[in-house]
């Protein structure tokens, strides 16, 4: 004689006619769920999943890759670039973390940069949502900085700029660029 092997709740239920009503209910619920999720999927776009990102469109409208690729693979590209830069000194801009931050750091009302790993900022908002720890910024800078020159050097540069009538500050560069853009 063989005892029927109990493989799942379903098998157990089918062996007992008293449970038939429960099964019908469960199947009905499954149908409702599937139908609902089919209807919903049309309206749920990828962009509305996850936190709303603060993106500064003034810095340009496109990332180095389409957004869905960046969402999935940004770490692969960063890690590849990291070894190239560290070991071989290859400093191309496309997948450079420094360039990510140059573009994605936002400014507050006082026109000062907010760290990209601050709550609600570009990097942190997704990483908090997915609860993935963000290690980059234990070492890497979280906001852009104009290249700092030692005062001794910058004095010489200023003297040079005076002679050659060159713009001395970033705001002057911006003004020139704005004028060129207007034309």
């Amino acid at each position: 004689m063989f005892a029927q092997p109990v493989t799942s709740k379903w098998v157990l239920a089918t062996t007992n006619p008293a449970n038939l009503g429960v099964i019908v209910k469960q199947i009905r619920n499954l149908f409702i769920f599937l139908t609902l999720s089919l209807v919903m999927s049309g309206s749920v776009m990828a962009d509305s999943v996850g936190p709303e990102l603060k993106i500064n469109r003034a810095n340009g409208d496109k990332c180095v890759l389409p957004a869905d690729e960046m969402r999935k693979d940004h770490m692969k590209h960063l890690q590849h670039q990291r070894d190239d830069t560290m070991r071989d000194g290859i400093r191309t801009e496309k997948f450079s973390l420094k360039e990510c931050i140059n573009c994605h750091a936002n400014k507050d009302e006082a026109d000062k940069y907010i760290p990209v790993n601050a709550p609600g900022e570009f990097c942190q908002s997704c990483h908090a949502y997915t609860s993935v720890k963000l290690d980059c910024f234990e070492c890497h800078a979280t906001k852009p900085r104009d290249t700092a020159f030692h005062p001794i050097v910058s004095d010489k540069m200023k003297a040079f700029a005076d002679v050659h009538d060159a713009p001395k500050t970033k705001s002057m560069l911006d003004t020139i660029a704005a004028k060129a853009g207007a034309k």
């Binding site: 420094k98 070492c139 890497h140 800078a141 852009p144 900085r145 700092a148």
Partner: peptide, 8 residues
Amino acid sequence: QSPDVPRG
């Protein structure tokens, strides 16, 4: 840190 000089 400076963006060019990561340290941690």
